[in-house]
Deep mutational scan, measured.
Amino acid sequence: DRHTIHIGDITIHLEGFSEEELKLAEELIKRGIHLEEVKRILEELYR
């Protein structure tokens, strides 16, 4: 499954994450956390 996060003019595609995980990812990215770090956090929390 493919999910999309929109932040301003930026569109990020993250596959294989639930709606809850994507909301967390979006919040972290909006707070300035680097995408690679966001992915690592999600994997630690949900895998």
Rank of each mutant, 00 (worst) to 15 (best):
H3N: 09
K23A: 11
H6P: 07
I41Q: 03
T11P: 04
G16K: 09
V38E: 00
E21D: 09
L14D: 01
R31L: 14
E15T: 13
I10C: 11
A25V: 13
K23S: 10
L24F: 12
E15C: 12
E27G: 07
T4Y: 00
L45V: 05
H13V: 14
R31G: 09
T11L: 05
D1H: 10
R47W: 03
I29S: 03
E44S: 00
R47M: 14
H34S: 15
E43Q: 02
I41N: 00
T4D: 11
R31K: 09
G32I: 14
F17I: 13
I33L: 14
E21V: 15
S18T: 14
L35P: 11
R40A: 06
I41C: 03
F17H: 05
R40N: 03
I29C: 03
I12P: 04
S18E: 08
A25D: 00
E21Q: 12
E26A: 12
T4V: 12
R31V: 11
E26P: 01
E36T: 08
G8L: 05
L35Q: 04
I33C: 08
K23V: 12
K23T: 09
T4I: 10
Y46N: 15
L28R: 01
G16Q: 04
E43G: 00
S18H: 13
G8H: 08
L42D: 00
T4S: 10
G32K: 03
R40K: 10
V38H: 00
L24D: 02
V38G: 00
E15Y: 05
Y46S: 15
E19Q: 13
K39Y: 09
L35R: 04
I29F: 09
E19R: 05
G32L: 10
R2T: 15
H3M: 10
E27K: 07
K39D: 01
D1Q: 06
L14M: 11
L42R: 00
L22S: 07
E21I: 15
I12T: 05
E15G: 11
F17K: 03
L24M: 13
E43H: 02
V38A: 03
E37A: 07
R2Q: 12
E19K: 10
T4F: 00
T11I: 07
E36R: 05
G32E: 03
L35T: 06
E37W: 08
L24P: 01
H34F: 03
E15Q: 11
S18Q: 06
R31Y: 06
E19D: 15
L14Y: 05
I5Y: 00
K39M: 15
H13I: 14
E26G: 05
K39Q: 08
E26H: 09
H13P: 03
E43A: 02
E37N: 04
E44T: 01
E43K: 03
E44M: 01
R31D: 05
T11N: 03
E27P: 01
A25H: 02
V38N: 00
E27Q: 07
D1L: 01
D9C: 08
H34Y: 03
E26C: 09
I41H: 01
I12K: 08
R31T: 11
L22T: 10
E15L: 13
E15I: 14
E21Y: 15
I7V: 12
I41Y: 05
E44K: 01
L14A: 06
Y46H: 15
E43M: 02
E27F: 02
L14V: 11
L24A: 04
T11W: 03
Y46D: 15
R40Q: 07
E44W: 04
E43C: 02
G8M: 02
L45M: 12
E26D: 11
E19H: 13
E36K: 05
E43T: 01
I7Q: 05
G8A: 06
D9L: 09
V38Q: 00
E37P: 01
E43D: 11
E26L: 12
E21M: 15
I33T: 08
L28A: 02
K30L: 09
V38R: 00
V38K: 00
R2W: 14
A25L: 09
L24N: 03
K23C: 03
E15F: 07
L24Y: 13
L42N: 00
S18A: 13
R40H: 05
L45K: 03
K39E: 03
L45W: 14
I29W: 02
R2G: 14
I41S: 01
E15K: 12
A25F: 13
L45N: 06
R2I: 14
T4H: 15
S18C: 14
R31E: 06
R47A: 15
H34P: 15
I41W: 08
R2S: 13
E21W: 15
E19T: 12
L45E: 12
E26S: 10
G32C: 04
R47F: 09
A25I: 13
R2H: 14
D9G: 12
E43F: 01
K23Q: 12
H34L: 11
R47C: 13
Y46A: 15
E36Y: 02
K39G: 02
H3V: 14
E36M: 06
L14I: 08
E21H: 15
G32W: 07
H6C: 04
H34M: 10
E43R: 01
K30M: 07
